[in-house]
């Protein structure tokens, strides 16, 4: 049986364009899954993971078009890239309800540093993961490739 985390990671690979190793490598997968559990109504995370388990029959495009899953899915991408949760739209809340955790917030000091946006930029999180004196004088790593 595939674990919840594996389902979440499999989906996240499709959403972010980063490999399973890179996503697990952020150290944030459990915490992000927990964040989803805190924000979405009971049972909804598992329902979501079940939906995404239907990939590739069910396409990401279809998920993103879904009024229910689209906003959640976009938020998961922002979660991986920025380490922050974005409050779901009012129209979504009107249908599914609101949890206190559904607010604009950085998940944790660690999630901020784990954001994939810094990797994508060929950079490092501002204020953390320093690169050493003079590292800024050379061409950026990933971005130049």
């Amino acid at each position: 049986m595939t674990s919840r985390r594996d389902l979440f990671i499999d989906l996240s690979v499709e959403l972010t364009g980063y490999s399973r190793v890179q996503l697990l490598g952020t150290g944030m997968s459990e915490r992000y899954l927990q964040a989803l559990d805190e924000v979405l109504p009971d049972g909804m995370v598992d329902e979501f993971l079940a939906t995404s388990a239907a990939l590739p029959t069910m396409t990401i495009d279809a998920i993103l078009r879904s009024e229910t899953w689209g906003p959640v899915t976009r938020n998961i991408m922002i979660l991986w890239y920025c380490g922050r949760w974005t409050a779901l739209p009012d129209s979504w809340r009107a249908v599914h309800g609101t949890r206190p955790a559904d607010s604009n917030h950085v998940i944790s000091a660690d999630s901020y540093q784990a954001g994939l946006q810094w990797v994508a930029a060929g950079a490092h999180p501002a204020g953390a993961r320093q690169q050493g004196f003079g590292a800024w004088t050379v061409a950026p790593e990933e971005a130049a490739s």
Partner: peptide
């Protein structure tokens, strides 16, 4: 030694990815 420090921090980033992988 200056670029060696940059390399050391790249090694750190690579280590962190490995260590978080079961």
């Amino acid at each position: 030694l200056l670029p060696a420090v940059h390399t050391m921090f790249r090694l750190r980033d690579a280590m962190l990815v490995l260590l978080a992988n079961p």
